[in-house]
């Protein structure tokens, strides 16, 4: 099926099979391998992207469903410097080890920070509850999000 979508502000015209989910499209067709695939049934959050500004699981969206939509991946958020401070805070606080969950964590955390400039730890944990980390644990990740929120508030 022929579709047109924008990925990280670039217009993509393509022809894809209906069964191709957005995660595979981004990785295999566009070589945007920052979108990680873990469980492929919506549980782990590694494939989190933004579609028309809201969070989505790339493994639970058919590429054809994204026809006409604006898709943003970790590459886009990273290149635009939108989350440079968040990335820096993750780095400084060691909020990652293997890094598999990190792109999804960053996008989900940024989604929260856009909605709530002053989240408490519980709110952060709740918002990131759909993103699994199997090595670092969550404490450092929550710390990094708190630090970023403080920084953005100018504290």
């Amino acid at each position: 099926m022929k579709i047109v979508l924008t990925v990280n502000d670039e217009t993509i015209r393509t022809d894809v099979e209906p069964r191709l989910h957005l995660g595979d499209f981004l990785r295999e067709h566009l070589s945007l391998t920052g979108t990680h695939l873990g469980c492929e049934h919506g549980v782990c959050g590694a494939c989190t992207v933004r579609i028309d500004g809201t969070l989505a699981r790339a493994c639970l969206v058919l590429t054809v469903q994204a026809d006409g939509c604006r898709v943003e991946t970790i590459e886009g958020l990273s290149d635009s410097d939108e989350i440079a401070d968040l990335q820096q805070a993750f780095h400084e606080r060691n909020a990652l080890q293997c890094g598999y969950c990190t792109p999804g964590m960053l996008i989900a955390a940024q989604d929260l920070l856009l909605q709530d400039p002053d989240p408490d730890r519980n709110t952060i944990r709740e918002h990131l509850s759909g993103n699994y980390c199997r090595c670092t644990g969550y404490h450092a990740i929550v710390d990094a999000v708190m630090t970023t929120a403080k920084g953005r508030r100018g504290e």
């Binding site: 989505a56 699981r57 989604d111 918002h127 759909g130």
Partner: peptide, 9 residues
């Protein structure tokens, strides 16, 4: 109901 990313869609 699930998580923010799931609820969003």
């Amino acid at each position: 109901v699930a998580h923010p990313a799931i609820r969003a869609r």
